[in-house]
C-alpha cells in the first residue's frame, strides 16, 4: 500500500493535492483513501492531508503513522515540531521538500538516513500567489510512486479543479506536468509499504486510568493567558518589519489594529512586534500612516537570522 502524507499550511492546497492524487490513483484502478486533517488552526497554520492507495481493499483508517512518502509544501514547516513533518518516518521513507535549498543540505540538517528530494516552488521568482499549487505537489507524488500515468494525473486535475474555473485548471496542469517531468529520474523511488506485522509487535502500554476528582479532572484551565505558549508566529510567511527611522510614534495604530495583540509599545513610545505570535496578517503594514512597516518574506528573514547567529 502507498501511504503518502502532505504537509503544508492552511490555504496552500494540501486537501486539493490529496484529492488530485487520490483521484489519479483511482483512475489507475487503485482502491483509495484521501482525507484532510483539520484542527482548530486556520489559514497559515500547519495542516496535513494524506492518501492511501492499494490494489487490495484498504482497511486502515485515519492518520498515516508510517508514511512511504512525505511531501512538505512549505519548507518552514520542517523545523516546526507542531507540524509533525517527520512523524513516523523511517529510512525507507522518501521526503520531498518544496524548497530552494538543496536536498543534500536538508539531509544534513535533518540527519535523515533516507532519501531527501527537493523541488523548487513552481512560479518561484514570478507571481507570488502561484507559489504553491495542489497540482504540482500531486504531480510530484504521482511520479515518485511510479504508479500513476501522466494521463491519469491530467484527468484527475481536471476532475478535481474544474469547479474552480479553467484558469485554475490550466495553471495546475502546467505546474503538475512540469514537476512530473522534473521527477522523472526518481520515478518509482517510493515503494509500497507493508502492513504492521503481528510477529514481534509492540504491545500498547495500557493503563488503568485512575479516578481523579473534578478539581483536577474537569475541563477547566485554572490559569490565565496560557495561550502565550502557542507560537502562532510559525504561521507567518511574511514578516512585518518596522523601520524605526520612519516610525513617528503616532497613536500606535499598528498596536491597536493588530488582532493578535502582538504589537506592544515600549517605554520610548515605539511599537515592538512579538514575532512569536505575529501571524503575519500585515494589517500593521497597510495601516501605518508613515509607511514605516514593510513586509519581508519569512524565508528570507529567517535566512538573515541564520547568518547573524
Amino acid at each position: 500500500m502507498y501511504r503518502i502524507r502532505f504537509h503544508g499550511r492552511g490555504g496552500q492546497g494540501m486537501k486539493t493535492a490529496s484529492r488530485i492524487l487520490g483521484t489519479a490513483f483511482f483512475l489507475e484502478g487503485f482502491e483509495v483513501q484521501d482525507a484532510p486533517r483539520y484542527g482548530a488552526e486556520r489559514r497559515g497554520a500547519p495542516i496535513f492531508a494524506y492518501v492511501r492507495a492499494s490494489k487490495e481493499a484498504i482497511n486502515e483508517r485515519g492518520i498515516i503513522k508510517e508514511p512511504g512518502l512525505v511531501i512538505v509544501a512549505d519548507d518552514t514547516l520542517v523545523a516546526m515540531p507542531a507540524a509533525g513533518v517527520l512523524q513516523g518516518v523511517t529510512e525507507d521513507t522518501v521526503i520531498l521538500i518544496v524548497s530552494v535549498i538543496e536536498a543534500e543540505l536538508w539531509k544534513d540538517r535533518l540527519n535523515f538516513p533516507g532519501r531527501v528530494l527537493t523541488v523548487i516552488p513552481p512560479g518561484e521568482g514570478q507571481s507570488h500567489e502561484r507559489a504553491f499549487t495542489g497540482g504540482a505537489i500531486a504531480g510530484a507524488a504521482a511520479r515518485l510512486t511510479g504508479a500513476v500515468s501522466k494521463a491519469s494525473l491530467e484527468e484527475a486535475i481536471r476532475e478535481e479543479l474544474i469547479p474552480l474555473g479553467t484558469k485554475v485548471v490550466e495553471e495546475n496542469l502546467e505546474d503538475a506536468l512540469s514537476v512530473y517531468e522534473f521527477m522523472a529520474e526518481h520515478e518509482g523511488c517510493v515503494a509500497p509499504g507493508t502492513a504492521i506485522a503481528v510477529e514481534g509487535f509492540t504491545p500498547p502500554n495500557w493503563v488503568e486510568l485512575p479516578f481523579e476528582d473534578a478539581r483536577l479532572s474537569s475541563p477547566a484551565i485554572h490559569a490565565e493567558a496560557t495561550s502565550e505558549q502557542i507560537k502562532t508566529g510559525l504561521w507567518r510567511t511574511v514578516r512585518p518589519v518596522i523601520d524605526y527611522e520612519l516610525c513617528n510614534r503616532c497613536s500606535w495604530l499598528c498596536s491597536t489594529f493588530c488582532p493578535e495583540s502582538a504589537i506592544s509599545v515600549n517605554e520610548d513610545g515605539f511599537p515592538e512586534i512579538d514575532y512569536e505570535h505575529c501571524k503575519g496578517c500585515m494589517i500593521c503594514m497597510t495601516q501605518c500612516p508613515p509607511h514605516a512597516i514593510s513586509g519581508v518574506l519569512e524565508r528570507e528573514a529567517k535566512g538573515g537570522e541564520d547568518n547573524e547567529t
Partner: peptide, 25 residues
C-alpha cells in the same frame, strides 16, 4: 482566581480522559 471553564479539546486523548473521568466519578 481567573478560570476558563468548559473549554474545548482537540484530539481523542484529552477528550477520552475527561469523559472517562466523568464515568469514574
Amino acid at each position: 482566581t481567573p478560570i476558563s471553564q468548559a473549554v474545548a479539546v482537540l484530539g481523542g486523548g484529552p477528550y477520552s480522559y475527561f469523559r472517562y473521568e466523568t464515568h469514574l466519578a
